[in-house]
Structure formats: structure tokens, C-alpha cells
């Protein structure tokens, strides 16, 4: 991999993390927020692999990425289960419908 390829992958990482954060900030649907979180984690995974490749220690990058995949999957499972419960209890997936504070 030469230097421009590294820059392209790094820009992809920045784009994925940015799109994920944008979705988390702007979305008003709990499932869409989990989608945003997933996109952000994809960028982080790619960052681990790129860092491993650039530093010459791809094994360490892969092992850290594997840990992130495991944690991310568990977080997604629990978040989706909570989303289903929220929908059962409140009848809506809008996070603003969950607040008990008056606006």
C-alpha cells in the first residue's frame, strides 16, 4: 500500500465516523440511531486495521478489531432489545417521546 491509498482509506474512515455521528445526532428513530452507531463502528474497525497496516503490526490491529466487533455486536443486540421494549411500553420509537420532562 502506498501513501495515497492510505490517505484514501483514512478519508473513508473519517467519512464513516462523521456519517455515523451525524445519524446519531439528527435521527429521531431509535433503530436509526443504532444504524448510525454501527456505521461509526465500521469506521473505527477500519481505523484499527489501517493503523496495524501502517505500523507494520497487522496482527495487533486485527485482534483489536475483533474485540471491537464482539463488543459492538453485543451493544447492538442489547440496544435493539431495549428498542423493542421501548416500543412495547411507549408505542413510539421517537426518543423525544420518552422524556418525562415538560418542554
Amino acid at each position: 500500500m502506498n501513501y495515497p491509498d492510505g490517505i484514501i482509506v483514512a478519508l473513508t474512515i473519517l467519512g464513516l465516523v462523521g456519517i455515523g455521528i451525524y445519524a446519531i445526532i439528527v435521527s429521531r428513530n431509535l433503530i436509526k440511531i443504532v444504524v448510525g452507531m454501527q456505521i461509526m463502528v465500521k469506521g473505527v474497525l477500519l481505523a484499527f486495521v489501517l493503523a496495524g497496516r501502517v505500523s507494520g503490526n497487522i496482527g495487533l490491529g486485527q485482534s483489536l478489531a475483533l474485540t471491537v466487533i464482539v463488543v459492538d455486536t453485543i451493544v447492538a443486540v442489547v440496544a435493539l432489545a431495549l428498542t423493542v421494549q421501548v416500543h412495547k411500553r411507549f408505542g413510539s420509537l421517537d426518543p423525544q417521546a420518552l422524556t418525562t420532562l415538560r418542554r
Binding site: 477500519l46 486495521v49 496495524g52 486485527q62
Partner: peptide, 14 residues
């Protein structure tokens, strides 16, 4: 992308 970067193991898991 991960496969192209030389990380086939993690690419398959992803």
C-alpha cells in the same frame, strides 16, 4: 477494504 489492507481474518468475521 479490510481484505485489501491485508487483514483477511477480520474481513471474514466482519
Amino acid at each position: 477494504d479490510m481484505y485489501l489492507l491485508g487483514a483477511p481474518f477480520i474481513a471474514v468475521i466482519e
